[in-house]
Amino acid sequence: MEGFLFWFCGTLMFLGGLMMVVQRSAVVSAVWLVFSFLCAAGIFALLSAPFLAVMQILVYAGAIMVLFLFVIMMLQGPVLDGERVPIKKGLWPFIALPPAAVIILLVGWVKGEGLRSLGDAPAPGFGTAEGVAQLLLGRYLLAFELISIVLLIAIVGALVIGKRERKLPWK
């Protein structure tokens, strides 16, 4: 059962990501990305992290992607111009370089380490809301407080950047 769910969610997640990359329309891309994130939530559930699965759907597939869809629909119109221009021939080796590096690393790692088991079933309470909360407000309290400052700065930054006015001195 676990095997079937892994292959189901994993394949669909990968295909969703692939469709996101190849789609021309930004809205269709965003919807495929939401699909991919939902399958990622399934993967989290398989890894006995039910709280993360819920947060993945709420925060990622919900909040962040809605923000993306809002912006895409706000900017609709000449958004896609120039996408049809082919990439210059001489650039292809440079484009292929980073993905090739990742593939070589991955294949090398799998060859060297072989299959490594996930180990025993985790202790009860692992990955539930209570278990994560104990860590978040205990061992990782400082990181938790700092991330709230990051979010606050992001809010202020987005407000400042998005504010309309600007009589630029050099215009």
């Binding site: 992290a49 994560v132 979010l151 700065i153 992001a154």
Partner: peptide
């Protein structure tokens, strides 16, 4: 469970980055 905490941190960073 430490990894789960850092996934939550990653969510926050992703949200800030998107905004």
């Amino acid at each position: 469970g430490g990894g789960h905490v850092f996934v939550l941190m990653n969510f926050a960073v992703a949200a800030a980055e998107a905004a």
